[in-house]
Amino acid sequence: MFLNLSITDPINNFVTWLVSHYGEFFHGITLFLLHYFLIPLELALRWIPPWAVLIALGLLGFHATKRFLPTFLFVACAYLIGCFGLWDKLMLTLALMMVSTFLCVLIGIPLGILTSKSNRLRSIVLPVLDVMQTMPGFVYLIPVLMLFNLGKVPAIFATIIYALPPLIRLTDLGIRQVDADTKEAAAAFGTSPWQMLIGVELPLARPSIMAGINQTIMMALAMVVVASMIGARGLGEDVLEGINTLNVGKGSQAGIAVVILAIIIDRISQAYGMEARQRRLLNGKR
């Protein structure tokens, strides 16, 4: 009944061909990302004394939420991670996540803008995003690893593949949902496409875009353990080790640290997602 078809060999051969012919090229990308982004950031984060990071977190938290209680909780929870002896790994995970998120924003927002402008591009991009979101991670993890060498860089790529789609979708959606009458009014005063984008569409799509960034960060954090399976150091390493040695306590401790990090970043980025005015109103009401 079924034809005897298989794409196993062509794909295997393609990966082998890619690795043996373009290995150097991909290795170059690895070195570039490592030396200009990750390593400096990691060094900086690990060089800054923890108390300074905690103070910075406090300031950032307060600037974002304008409220004392959440700010205090952020700092206290981060301090708790330090008490677990996971500070160094926390910084490594943070660096990895920051670079991944930065690259996601760099790729995702422009791509989201383009798809919002072109239905044809959108009809090509959306299925690709579906694939990115549903393809089991390990399928692309191993080839990515073979191309970019074991460690943080393949982890970043894997994270981007997984965490990029919501940002593109929500940027696209946010811009498409900008009120047509508002856009017509702006156009009636002679806005250029660029003025329309920067002055009208992006500001009005901001809640949606920020929700996208928030989603991206959350998904990047969810990838921490998977990333550690391809040798990216950080909190995921402890979770993995906990799993491998049936050390449930150790795994849970690192797991909790990931969750704390996620919650702090989530609350802060959500607070920034609201417009300044919205925040003022919200605080006024309390």
Partner: peptide, 16 residues
């Protein structure tokens, strides 16, 4: 649109 013709809208068309 910038120099010769401007417009006022029924739905105001203000930038929120």
């Amino acid at each position: 649109r910038r120099h010769k013709v401007s417009m006022v809208f029924q739905g105001f068309g203000l930038m929120p």
